[in-house]
Each structure stands twice: as C-alpha cells, then as structure tokens.
Design a protein around this nucleic acid. Structure first.
Lengths: 360, 360
DNA sequence: CTGAAAGCGCTTACAG
DNA sequence: CTGAAAGCGCTTACAG
C-alpha cells in the first residue's frame, strides 16, 4: 500500500500552505482564501484522493465522532438489530459511528465494556437492553452525554427511551373486544427470569390489557403464567384450551408464545381464528408475519428507541444543557425519567369474531 | 468532567520524565528504568487513574486496533449475532475493537461503509454475509489485511471462512437413513431471491443430501422448491404430505421451513416424528430447540466463522505474508479460496423410524 | 489574504 | 540509566 496522502501533499501540489487546505476542506475558506487557491486545493485533493486522517482530527479536536453503545445481549437478539439500525441511522446523518459491546449479562464484562469505550474516547454513551427493564446507571454513564434505550434508569439520572406498553397492550385487548370477545385469557410471561430481575414489560402490559377489558365490561381473568418461548406457550395454551369453559381468545405474552398457542390449537383440532382468536406481541419478524395464520400483534418501537436515544445524546453533545425532549412520562411510573414511544397495533389474520361454541 | 490525566501528570507526580512513564506502562522498563522509579510510576498512574489516550497512541503508532466489518444485513439477523460474537471474542483477546456497518444490500451504502472505515483508519477489514453466498471482493478489501465470513470471493483474492454444507447436509440425510427411511423428500429453498443471486447453500446442501442418500441406496427424488420461510415450508409440506405415496421423512431447507412443515403435519393430523420425520437446518435458536417437537437439525458454524476470520486478519496484521490456515478446500468448488468449517449435526426429537403407513 | 508556529497526547530513537 | 527532542497529521489562533 502507498503512503496515504496528507494535507502537506495537497498543499504542495496546490502551491499553498497546509493551513489553507485545512480551511478550504473545512468550509472556512470564504473571505480567508483567494478563490483561485480554493479551486486549486480542491483539485489537488481530488487528484490525490486526499481524505483527512480522522485519528489526527480526533486528537486535535478532542472528539472522535464515535458513540459507544453497551448492551446486554442485544447484538445477538433478532430485535437488537432494529434498535441498532435506528441508532446507526441517526449517527450516520451526523458523521458519527457506533462501537457496540455486548455484556452477556455479566457485570465484569459490562464494566470492561465501559472502560474500553472510555479509553477509546467515545464522545457519548448509550446503554440498550434486550428486554424492557429497569437498569441502574453506573457513574460513568451519568458523567458522560448518555441515554438509555429500552430501559429506565432506577437511579433516575439518565433519560430512557422506552415502549409505551400500557397503551400497546390496551390496543391489543381492544381488537379482541371490538371483535366481540367476552372470554379472553392472558398467557403471561414470567416477570423474573435468569437474566432480568425486573422486567417492566410484564406489569405494564397487564395493566393495559386489564384497563381495556374492564373498560369494555369484560371480566378480567387471572393470567396463566408460563414463559416467553414457543414451548411454554404451547403448554399453557394446551391446558387452557381444554378447559370446559374454553376462552374464545388468547392474549399472548409475545409472538413466540402465540406461535406455541397456534400449534396447541392445531393439535386440539381448533382452527385459528375461527375457533380461537390469538394475539401476539412484539411483531417479531420471525414469528408474527410468517406464521400460519399471520399474527395480529403489537409492534415494539425498537428502531425508534435506538434512533431517539442516539438523537438525544447528539443533542446533549451539541448543548450539554439540552433538556429532555417532549413526551416524557406517558405510561410510566411516578418519577421515571423516560420518554414513552408508541407501540403500534398491527392487524393480521389471527383474530375473528367468536362463534358460539357448540357445547353451549 | 475533570480534565483527564495525561502522561505528564503521572510523570510529575512520580518525579520522572514522560518517556519513563511510557516505558514503564508499556513494559519496556526492564533494564531501562530504575526499579524504584518503576514503582513510583505505577503508583502515580494508579492514584491518578491514568490510562493512556488511545487516540494519541493510534496517531503515534499508526494503528488503531480497530477492525472494520461490513455486512449485508447480518447485524439484523438472528444468526448475525453469533458471527459477530465470535469475531468480538477473538478481537477482544488482542485488544481490538470492532466497528460494524450494515449495507442493507445496497451497493452505494457498501461503498460508503468501506470509505468511512478506511477514513477511520481501521487496521483490517472483514466482510460478512448473512447467507452463504459468493461475494466479489472490492479493491479496498484486496489491499487491506482482510477476510470474508460466510462467503467466498469470486475474485479469488481474499480468503473466506465458510460452512462445510456438503458434509452437513450429508450428516442430516444420514440420520434419516440410519433411522430406516427410504422415502425422503427435500423441501428446498430458492437459489435466487431478492437479495442474493448466488446462494451457495442450495447446491451444496443438495449435493450432500444426494450423496448420502445415494450411498445408502435410497432413491433420490426431485426436490420441491419453496422458499426459506415458515409459510412456504407449510405450503410445500401440505402438498407433499397429501400425496398418495407420502414420504416418511422431510429434509428441510432450514428450520423455519421445518417449522412450517411441523404445522402442516399437524393440520393433516400427522404426528411428528411418529408419522413423519422432519429434519431442519441452521440450528436457529428461535425455531429448532424451542419447537414442539424440538428439531433435529444441523448447526451452522456462525460463531466459528466470525472467530476464525478475525483471527486470520490478526495473523495477517502480525505477518502480512501469513499463509492461509489449514483446512482450505473441503467441500468447495475448484479454485475457491476458503476454509470450510464443520456443520455439526444436532439430534433432537423430530426423527423416528418410519412405520409402515396403513395404506400400504 | 497567507504562512509559520503551537499543540492535541503519545512513543521512540538519540544524546548525555 | 535518564531526559529532551522529534514527529504521527491535523486545526486554529497569530503575526505578517
């Protein structure tokens, strides 16, 4: 590989000083550099294929145009990609680049990730969670321009961008109500699991479901708690659908659980949606649209969370005093510093009006 | 935020020169710096929480300890995470960090990605594909220390790390043969789709299936071609399983297709594996293990591809003349520069011996 | 309007 | 064994 051209090379070729090429290429030429020299500089740069060394600029300018993002396991999850995509898109528009590090839910790795990011002199920090949860922001995050995505700071210090699950769940329940269902059971996920001890999705979705159902005068039934995967969904649905007073609709913890429910219905010879309506949650690209039948579900705003969180740190960078954007507070508990983003209902084909079961 | 401590601060506190702190902290102290001063430097650094500015080091050393990875859509795919994880693990062990950019199958974005990575002075480049395919390496990749993951260079210039699909598929077919199946049909994916025009997975898997079946004296049947998703799998299986000479086993293009086949079997009142055996491919974490029943499948070596590719560029960095590692060539076409990695069979519960169908 | 100089924070010959 | 100097490639006051 040839030696990369430097500003000096451009200056020599154009017959000007290095300062001149810097000014021209950074748009500070007007009124400072003679027009013909500006042209000469641009031509020389073009000819040499010159592009300023960003490492040198970073040192000189004391900023790297890099934001560090630490995540639990998001880079490995199917949704994670959407969140990261949103963040990348926002970053790209401003010439920023992301370096993302997974912690795999390991505290030591998390600390290490923050340390290497700080050592690398990232301009700002983002923390993103795979599942909507509470996160206690460490000092390092509080000191830097930072934001949270898909989680809420239990220390109350850094702003989070989260899904409005209460409204989302209410919308999901509402489709069922509107279709005429009066006997609905919720296949709920566990609030605790190996990796999170404070999953916010569970209580908030339940609140939403409950509100919508009660507002419509539909009796609220105790949720049956399984897990978040296909198999627990299958098993829970198998049990519920064999009850004497089989419900006409199932509200599922997520789309994987809903897929399990579809399978269970099939095994019992029940058609979806003619015999049971099923609604999922997440709009999981692997499970919702491709399912047979395609699942009616609620879309989690992953892309938006990534995009808004990144925009927020960029705003903080531009103006450290920048206040929180609009929309803080909807669907949240008292005192949470977060902005809730809409969870849109997506209607597909897994919901139909109930038909009177032959046995009643 | 306070001003970050520099080497000067440490030097002053320890009563030595900046050179001394550099030597001590970089392990070049022995024989050069008096032992007591070494101690003083370490203590001062510790006390101040000093950590060398990596931007300044990068400028001085002319290397950033960063490798750029450009991918088509891998950061958004469920498997991509595994590939990236392997790459990150290898990078981490050597103090490297990754910056990854998705192209979304857009040539302009791809070019832009390479450009920003080069502008950022990454030390090496990786290109990773979501699906096993051919990729034509651009000039920029050929000039830099680089490697390919999950694809093979049609220009023959840069080394690829790819799955040994021929052997993987043969192993998948072999389970069926060993269980006693003599009537097997392949639910194959499309070779072309919107995003790839040269998917290598298709022909190579077919070669493997065919070899294993023919070696066992099992008649090779024309594959039925659908797609790569749940629904096409469902539809293809629905048709095949209603034939008069219904096969006793289905070999599926991937686990999503297999999931569709499971659903189709269920709709036809066929039990898996008692009435039909089904084998998938990929070991997709969302579909294989969680399915009911859990799918016997073949695991794609995503983690290994990422890890080996990264190790290779690191080796190139250490010694630009470094030759290709062992294992080049297995399961490949003539002239392909790539190393094939094992696809391990994972046996679960979707395969059983055939039982004579009642109608025969 | 233009060029020489300083300095971002390091590391590595080099002279003492 | 130790410190002063040069230099990585930039940008930005500053003096002419």
């Amino acid at each position: 590989m040839h030696r990369r051209p430097t500003a000096k090379d451009v200056a020599d070729l154009a017959g000007v000083s290095r300062s001149a090429v810097s000014m021209v290429l950074n748009g500070r030429a007007e009124g400072n550099i003679a027009p013909d020299k500006q042209v000469a500089v641009r031509e020389a740069a073009e000819k040499l294929g010159y592009t300023p060394d960003s490492v040198a600029r970073s040192l000189r300018l004391q900023r790297t145009r890099t934001v560090g993002v630490v995540t639990d396991a998001i880079a490995t999850s199917p949704f994670g990609g959407r969140l990261l995509e949103g963040a990348v898109a926002a970053a790209e528009r401003h010439g920023y680049v992301l370096v993302v590090m997974d912690t795999h839910f390991d505290a030591a790795r998390e600390e290490g990730a923050y340390r290497t990011l700080v050592d690398r002199r990232v301009d700002a920090l983002l923390y993103a969670a795979m599942s909507y949860s509470r996160y206690r922001s460490p000092e390092v995050l509080q000191r830097a321009p930072s934001a949270l995505a898909n989680c809420v700071d239990s220390a109350g210090a850094v702003l989070g961008f989260v899904p409005d699950e209460v409204a989302g769940a209410a919308a999901a329940a509402q489709v069922l109500v509107d279709a005429g269902h009066r006997d609905v059971v919720l296949l709920a996920g566990d609030q605790r699991n190996e990796t999170y001890d404070d999953l916010l999705a569970v209580p908030r979705r339940e609140t939403g479901y409950r509100r919508a159902l009660e507002a419509a005068g539909v009796r609220w039934q105790e949720p049956v708690r399984g897990g978040w995967e296909v198999r627990p969904g299958y098993e829970a649905a198998l049990a519920v659908l064999q009850r004497d007073d089989r419900p006409t609709a199932l509200l599922c913890a997520n789309d994987r659980v809903a897929a399990g429910a579809v399978l269970a219905a099939c095994h019992l010879g029940l058609r979806v949606p003619q015999d049971v309506s099923i609604v999922g949650y997440d709009d999981d690209e692997n499970f919702a649209a491709p399912m047979v039948p395609p699942l009616t579900t609620v879309r989690l705003p992953f892309r938006e969370m990534g995009e808004r969180a990144l925009q927020h740190v960029l705003a903080l960078l531009a103006n450290p005093e920048a206040s929180a954007p609009e929309g803080v507070g909807r669907g949240l508990d008292e005192g949470e510093v977060a902005v809730s983003l809409e969870c849109a209902l997506v209607q597909r084909r897994s919901v139909a009006p109930p038909h009177p079961s032959p046995s009643r």
